[in-house]
Design a protein around this nucleic acid. Structure first.
Lengths: 141, 141
DNA sequence: TCGTAAATTGTAACTATTACAAAATAGATA
DNA sequence: TATCTATTTTGTAATAGTTACAATTTACGA
């Protein structure tokens, strides 16, 4: 908990139970949750929680680079990650698993050729994951 | 126009003026428009057009791979492209220009290492584009 | 402990999209 | 070519995700 307080203080943000709940939830549940999922999870133990609080805080924490927001290419809801290194997501269309794919540096280098200065990037990939591919192979035997 | 008719027929879709309008607009305006932008543009010459028609047809054409849909990482609206090769987008945070970045093959190869079968991919990049970087250099001189 | 700026809450509004039913139409068939 | 029917179009209403706003509460520096 101390770690989240430090993080908030470093950005001159007030320490509120709601903010600590959100940070703790995101840190302990690396499941790329939506705002609604965060809301529902925290509301269980803090029934007075308002959804606006979730949105407000998510917003301020994203702006302060404490957490990251992104969306999957075929979804209309934002999703959130506790501060992580840059990565892509691979989504299996069969089992819906989400794999984090660390892919940062080589891609950024590639972009230098375009002479644009890349500051942020985001990507996601869809297909069939290793597990599902193997299941299919077994069936075919 | 003949080309759009062929395209629709190839997928056993009925030829309607609305569909031809959408295809023609997307083909001639490579501006990654949103559903609303497509709607407004076509409605000028076809005032009876309904927004539902846009959504219905966009949907059916995406499913038939006639057009592509995607969204920018920080936007909540879908955007559409006339059939193109796979590419990423680079968005300049200063001038808001969108650059198409052809980046397909090397990345897919890279993914083979993960043993997942990649079928679709999507990515976008944000930063400062070449033009805006050059402008800044001139100013500093 | 107090005062104030900031945070929280609940409600209402807004935007993008989807659901649905009635009317219109494309295009196959006679 | 006229007719028939499944498909498409339209308009309206509903929904999901998010944002705006005003009243109340709270964090925290003085």
């Amino acid at each position: 908990m101390e770690k989240y307080i430090k993080e908030l203080k470093a950005h001159k943000l007030k320490i509120t139970p709601q903010r600590l709940d959100i940070l703790s939830f995101l840190d302990k549940n690396r499941i790329h949750p939506s705002a609604d999922e965060i809301y529902k999870a925290i509301k269980i133990n803090s029934p007075a929680l308002s959804k606006t609080t979730i949105y407000n805080n998510i917003d301020v924490m994203v702006k302060n680079n404490i957490i990251k927001s992104f969306r999957f290419m075929d979804s209309n809801e934002l999703r959130f990650d506790y501060k992580t290194t840059e990565h892509y997501h691979f989504i299996c269309r069969k089992c819906k698993s989400i794999y984090d794919v660390d892919i940062s540096l080589p891609y950024l280098e590639k972009f230098e050729h375009y002479m644009h200065k890349v500051e942020e990037f985001y990507g996601d990939y869809k297909g069939v994951c290793e597990n599902c591919l193997n299941k299919k192979k077994l069936k075919n035997k």
